[in-house]
Design a protein around this nucleic acid. Structure first.
Length: 297
DNA sequence: AAGTACATCAACCGCACGCAT
DNA sequence: GATGCGTGCGGTTGATGTACT
């Protein structure tokens, strides 16, 4: 018994959207919100599949979507995120304000791959992650599962729009940032703007003093003490969670008025990512699952 | 100007996941 | 635990535009 199709294909339009269809969809969503994609076409008077409506909205009609040429900074970011995450376009798109997964995917396949190859750079090969998620999950080791559990729950809460509830548990957004700031005192800092447009000074480098940082890194890479390893794992993992908490909520990443992605906000973003990538890559041998499994990020 | 090849990107398709029952 | 539904994701297709012959 096969799975039911998402909708009856009969009598439905396919292909390029017309301006009239766009307007119908936009008007409906403005009034009712992004809910019930399956029933939306009928209610909105569209002869389209619900999935098609969602795609059209998410990729083209949704406010704040940036069209047009990618900047070199964006290109660089895409390449580095790809090396970290593989072809997880939605995750990559989530870290580049105004860009959609589809656009980034197309840009990668049509421009960046060629560009990299012409420069003699072979992009990191990733397995087709989507098709291996189950297997990867099964492979995930016990300790990482324990570490990831809390984060996954946080992520789930965020997805459900319960960020406030989450913030009550681990303080609020500012406190999350403050926590990071405390952990990162004495480190080179980067500035990240909070949702409240407060400048938060924090670092995505390892916690504590420089010596502690070195100890952490050494332990992560080659400690023979299982206990130390576990403690440091948790510490670094928590740090990644805090950073990613900020990254995932792009309101935390950039204030609304910076959605235009002006040069100043772009600089701040790039600085922040520099630190972020450094931290992840420093610990990549131990946190591969964080960077590459569907549980991480 | 016409035909063909290639490039681009919007849109489609099928699968997997989370959630409700 | 099994099943079905709604949704989101990544891979792929195909229509359209552009360059070349």
């Amino acid at each position: 018994m096969g799975r039911k199709p998402c909708c009856s294909k009969e009598g439905l339009r396919k292909g390029t959207w017309t301006a009239k269809e766009d307007k119908l969809l936009t008007d409906y969503i403005k009034e009712h919100g992004e809910v019930g994609w399956r029933s939306l076409p009928v209610k909105a008077g569209l002869l389209r599949c619900g999935k098609s409506c969602r795609l059209r909205w998410v990729n083209y009609l949704k406010p704040g979507i940036k069209r047009g040429n990618f900047t070199t900074e964006e290109e660089d970011l895409i390449v580095r995120l790809y090396n970290l995450l593989g072809s997880r376009w939605s995750l990559i798109a989530g870290r580049i304000p105004g860009r959609t997964d589809n656009e980034i995917k197309n840009y990668w396949n049509t421009h960046l791959l060629k560009k990299l190859k012409s420069e003699g750079v072979e992009p990191k090969i990733h397995k087709s992650l989507a098709k291996h998620t189950k297997r990867q999950k099964e492979k995930a080791n016990v300790s990482s599962q324990i570490n990831q559990k809390g984060y996954k729950e946080n992520k789930k809460r965020n997805k459900k729009g319960k960020i406030e509830e989450n913030c009550n548990n681990i303080e609020d957004k500012e406190q999350v940032a403050k926590k990071t700031e405390e952990q990162c005192r004495n480190q080179d800092s980067v500035r990240v703007m909070s949702a409240n447009n407060h400048d938060i000074t924090c670092s995505s480098s390892s916690a504590g003093s420089t010596s502690e940082k070195e100890t952490n890194c050494n332990n992560v890479h080659c400690s023979s003490s299982a206990q130390n390893l576990e403690e440091n794992d948790n510490e670094i993992y928590e740090k990644l969670q805090v950073i990613d908490e900020l990254l995932l909520n792009d309101n935390c990443l950039l204030p609304t008025e910076c959605r235009e992605f002006n040069s100043e906000s772009q600089m701040l973003l790039m600085e922040f990512y520099e630190e972020y990538f450094q931290l992840v890559s420093e610990n990549s041998c131990h946190f591969q699952d964080y960077a590459h499994s569907d549980l991480g990020f």
